[in-house]
C-alpha cells in the first residue's frame, strides 16, 4: 500500500497581494512530502471552497496580510461547510492580532500562525493533526 499523502490547499482570499508567506509555506509543506495546491492571488471565498472541493484536500491554509481576516476567514469556512467540507483542517496566518486569533480559533479554525512562526512547526502541526484524524477514521472503519 502506497503511503497516503496529505493534500493541502494554500489560498489567498481577497485583494491582498502579499504572497511571500503563502508561497514560502507552500514550498516548505511540499518539502515535508505533502501535495500542495496554491490558488494564486485575489480569490473569493467561494472560489477557494470550489478548488478545495475539486482537489479533495485535507487541509486549507489561508494567508491574509490585509486586515480583512475577520470578514474573509469566516466566509471561507462557511463556503466550505456549505459544500460538506467541515472535516477539512483549517489553518491560517498573516498579520492577525491575538484577540482575533482567539475568536477565529473558537470558530472553526484549528490554528492560526503569526509572524515569526517557524515554518517546519507548521508542517509538524499539520502532520500531527491529520494523523490523529486518519487514525480516528481507521478506528471507525
Amino acid at each position: 500500500m502506497s503511503e497516503r499523502r496529505i493534500r493541502v490547499l494554500v489560498a489567498k482570499p481577497g485583494l491582498d497581494g502579499h504572497d511571500r508567506g503563502a508561497k514560502t509555506v507552500a514550498s516548505v509543506l511540499r518539502d515535508h512530502g505533502m501535495e500542495v495546491v496554491y490558488t494564486g492571488l485575489h480569490k473569493t471565498p467561494a472560489m477557494i471552497a470550489e478548488i478545495a472541493l475539486q482537489e479533495d484536500v485535507d487541509v486549507v491554509g489561508l494567508s491574509i496580510l490585509s486586515g480583512a481576516h475577520m470578514e474573509l476567514f469566516p466566509r471561507v469556512r462557511q463556503e466550505l461547510v456549505e459544500r460538506g467540507l467541515d472535516h477539512v483542517l483549517m489553518v491560517g496566518g498573516g498579520i492577525i492580532p491575538g484577540d482575533d486569533m482567539q475568536v477565529l480559533e473558537a470558530d472553526g479554525f484549528a490554528k492560526l500562525f503569526g509572524p515569526g512562526t517557524n515554518t517546519d512547526s507548521i508542517a509538524e502541526y499539520i502532520q500531527t493533526e491529520i494523523s490523529k484524524r486518519w487514525a480516528a477514521e481507521e478506528a471507525q472503519a
Binding site: 481577497g14 485583494l15 491582498d16 485575489h42 473569493t44 490585509s66 486586515g67 480583512a68 475577520m70 470578514e71 474573509l72
Partner: peptide
Amino acid sequence: DEMCRGEVGQV
C-alpha cells in the same frame, strides 16, 4: 464592489 467586503479602509 462585492470583491471588497471587509477590505474598505483597512490598510
